[in-house]
């Protein structure tokens, strides 16, 4: 099963929330969906599922979702941790969702155990914590063992153990030839989970690449050199077009170079090298660099002003 979103678009009044997004989700791959708040991630997912009316279409193995039966064996979606009736028990909630694909009761019990809700399965979920609501939502998405899992911020409210479980589970689920499309603000988690990334900002696509390629593009990938004469080394670097930024008393951050080449250059100019460290940008660095200024709702300074 592959999923192809073609020209997805959606406007709210004069605001273009999603603007001509085209991408493909491949089986066997966990695709992360990133973007600042208000970037249009949730709207995109709803457009894919036909929940929101907008432009474009999404094809699931070449067909519209309405042409598949049962739909829940094609896609399992978890869009919010609070999508349940507060007085319908967790088990009955799943029983209701099970009807579309005639899923047996044994499978309901299986997913309840899988997400660890067996002790509260017969309780009304009105009093569930955010994390428990997430588990129930995940159970609903998993119920029919769909070929595609579409999850919007599934890790919100989960404890560290549950997040680790979710990561391992989704990776395993994808490895079985399924499509996993997951949005999250937990970039450190996404770095461990995703193979591929789709990044949007202000409704537009800004990256559609493998995780490795996305992170490699960041200016945060550099080499720290601490040496006896940083000014002399910087001049040597500049002479061959390599950009350096002073760092600390005796250091330089060198971009677009490799450690061997810097070591050779230092040796050539008689400079003693104290440290030569290759630094790799995190997903967070790369994401922030790419989306800086693209926040829909800009934050103030994180350091509050102090008045005397």
């Amino acid at each position: 099963m592959s999923v192809e979103a073609i020209g997805l678009g959606k406007s709210y009044g004069s605001t273009r929330a999603v603007d001509d997004l085209t991408f493909r989700l491949e089986p066997g791959v966990v695709t992360g969906f990133l973007g600042p708040n208000g970037a249009g991630k949730s709207t995109t997912m709803r457009l894919m599922l036909g929940l929101d009316k907008g432009d474009g279409q999404t094809l699931w193995d070449g067909k519209k979702l309405t042409e598949h039966k049962p739909v829940s064996k094609v896609v399992g979606a978890h869009l919010d941790a609070k999508f349940f009736h507060p007085s319908r028990s967790a088990r009955n909630h799943l029983k209701m969702l099970a009807q579309e694909a005639s899923i047996p009761s044994s499978r309901i019990d299986e997913v309840i155990s899988l997400v660890g809700l067996q002790d509260v399965a017969k309780k009304a979920p009105g009093g569930f914590s955010l994390g428990m609501g997430q588990r129930l939502g995940l159970a609903g998405a998993l119920l029919a063992q769909p070929k595609v899992m579409l999850l919007d911020e599934p890790a919100n409210g989960l404890d560290p153990q549950s997040i680790q479980w979710l990561r391992d589970f989704l990776r395993h689920y994808a490895s079985q030839g399924n499509v996993v499309f997951v949005s999250s603000h937990l970039l450190s988690e996404m770095q461990l989970m995703a193979d591929h990334l789709i990044v949007i900002a202000k409704g537009k696509m800004v990256a559609n690449d493998s995780l490795a390629a996305f992170v490699a593009r960041s200016s945060g990938n550099d080499i720290l050199v601490r040496c006896s004469d940083p000014a002399k080394l910087a001049a040597a670097m500049a002479s061959v077009g390599v950009h350096c930024v002073p760092e600390g008393a005796d250091g330089l951050a060198v971009q677009l170079a490799n450690t061997d080449w810097i070591g050779d250059a230092a040796f050539k100019y008689g400079i003693t090298v104290y440290e030569l460290t290759k630094r790799t940008a995190s997903l967070e660095d790369a994401f922030l660099e790419l989306t800086s200024g693209d926040q829909q709702f800009q934050l103030g300074s994180s350091a509050p002003e102090v008045t005397s």
């Binding site: 599922l49 979606a77 869009l79 919010d80």
Partner: peptide, 18 residues
């Protein structure tokens, strides 16, 4: 009404896009 109130309409219409 309750489907809209509790967001269940999105689960319902995901399973029944028709």
């Amino acid at each position: 009404g309750q489907e809209y109130r509790f967001g269940l309409i999105r689960l319902t219409l995901t399973e029944f896009p028709n």
